[in-house]
Design a protein around this nucleic acid. Structure first.
Lengths: 215, 215
DNA sequence: GATATTTTATGATTTTTTTCCTATTTACTT
DNA sequence: AAGTAAATAGGAAAAAAATCATAAAATATC
C-alpha cells in the first residue's frame, strides 16, 4: 500500500534527513523549486497530485539515498533494519523426513513452512561484521580449510556461543563460551581433546561472536 | 538510486509474481490495460516514460503488496545488474593474531583487509534457498540444537560438501559427500563414530548443499 | 534594522502521463 | 481448425504533472 500522504511525507522526511527544505531538495534534484510546494500537492479541484517516479528517482540521486531508504521514510521503519534481509522458508529438521514438505526436486512445498530472515543479522551488528577465513585443519571437524566465519565484534556473547577472543598478548582464538563473569571468562576448545581454559578478563583484549559459517 | 529499467522491471515482476500479465495487472489496478505496454515505456522521441506514483500505488493496492515488496523487486534487479550484495572485510585466520588488523574494540582496522560477499549466494540460488532448524543433539558437535542450516537445492554438490540427502524411502539426512559417480554416492556421517555409507543413485530422491550455518 | 537569500504560494504554460480508440498478435477453448 | 478472449502495439485526445513567471512570506546576513 502507498498513500498520497505517505509519499509526500517520505519526500519531506528525506529532505529533512539530508538537511534540505522541500524546495531545496527539489532544486538539488534538478527540478523546479516549487514542485514540492504544499500548494502543489493537491490540484485546483481538490484532487490529490502524485509526483512522477522520475521525480522520486531524481530526488534519490540528489541525496544518494536508495529505494530502501525511501521506503523506510514511507513505512516509518528504521533504515538500517530493512537492509538486505531475505525471508526464506524454514522447518525443523525432524519434520524434513515426513511427507509433504518437499517436491520431487527437493524444493520446499506446501504451506506448512515457516519463515526466517537470512542473514539474521540485527541492526547494530549489520554495519560492523567481518569475516575470517580458516586456514589449516586445527579446528576440524567444526571448521575446515576454506570455511568463512562471519563475526560480529559488538555482539553480546552468551553461554555456548562460538566466540573469537583476543588476549592482551596478541593471541587470537575461536572457542566456545562456557561461562563468563566480571573477573573471568571460561572457554572450551572446539577440539574436544583440549581442556577448558579460564582467562582473567584483564587479559582479554576483546571478544566477538561467530554469527554464520559457510560450509 | 532508482532507474527507469528498474521501475518497469519491478512492475513486470510484480505482475508475474501475482499471476498477471502486465496488461492484466493494469486492468486489475483500474488503469488502462495498455498503460504498461512495452511501447508505452519509451516516448515517441525516445525519451523514457516514468509512471506516476499514483500508478504504482494502484498496482500495490491491486496486488495487496506493500512498498517493501515493490522495492525488493527493484533491488533484486539491482543485484542482478551489479552482481554484488553486501561486502564485508575478510582476512585469513592465521593473520588475525598478527599486529595491526584490529583496533582496541576488536573492529577491523587498516587497509590490508580483503572483501567477501555476505551472504555469498548466487542469483540463481537466491530464490530457492531454504533453511532447516536443528532439533536435538544427534549431529553434535558440528550442529547443535537451534542451529539453522541454509540449504540450496539446485547447487551442484562436490566432494567434502555438507549435503542434505533424501532417499526414495523418505529418509532425510545431513552428511558429508565423500565421492559420487553415475551409479553411487558415498557419504560420511558428521558423527565420526559412524562408518561411511554407499547409496545407489536409484535410491536418492534429491540432494541439496548446505551453504551457511548460524551459530 | 535594512538587505539579500531562501522558501512558499498561485496561476498560466509546457511537457508528460494516462486514457481512449482501433488494429494486430498471441493464447486458450471447444 | 475455428472461434473467443487476452495481450500488445501505436496514434490521437484528455488529464495530470512539471515548469515558468511572479509575488509574498520567512529566514539569514551584514
Amino acid at each position: 500500500m502507498l498513500t498520497h500522504d505517505q509519499i509526500w511525507q517520505a519526500i519531506d522526511r528525506l529532505a529533512t534527513t539530508f538537511g534540505y527544505s522541500p524546495s531545496g531538495l527539489a532544486k538539488q534534484a534538478g527540478l523546479d523549486p516549487t514542485s514540492f510546494n504544499k500548494s502543489k500537492r493537491i490540484g485546483p479541484d481538490g484532487k490529490p497530485r502524485w509526483p512522477s517516479t522520475e521525480s522520486v528517482s531524481r530526488v534519490l540521486s540528489a541525496t544518494g539515498a536508495n529505494m530502501s531508504d525511501f521506503v523506510s521514510m514511507v513505512e516509518d521503519i528504521d533504515v538500517q533494519q530493512r537492509h538486505s534481509t531475505t525471508l526464506i522458508p524454514v522447518i525443523g529438521f525432524a519434520q524434513a523426513g515426513t511427507h509433504g514438505f518437499f517436491d520431487e526436486q527437493g524444493y520446499p512445498q506446501g504451506g506448512s513452512w515457516d519463515e526466517v530472515q537470512f542473514p539474521e543479522v540485527s541492526t547494530s551488528e549489520k554495519n560492523n561484521i567481518y569475516a575470517l577465513k580458516i586456514n589449516g585443519d586445527s579446528m576440524e571437524p567444526l571448521y575446515r580449510q576454506g570455511d568463512v566465519l562471519v563475526v560480529s565484534p559488538n555482539s553480546k556473547i552468551r553461554k555456548a556461543d562460538r566466540i573469537v577472543l583476543k588476549t592482551t598478548n596478541g593471541e587470537v582464538m575461536v572457542k566456545e563460551l562456557v561461562r563468563q563473569n566480571a573477573t573471568h571468562i571460561e572457554i572450551k576448545s572446539l577440539n574436544p581433546d583440549h581442556e577448558n581454559r579460564k582467562i582473567s578478563m584483564n587479559d582479554v583484549a576483546w571478544t566477538a561472536r561467530v554469527l554464520w559459517v559457510s560450509q
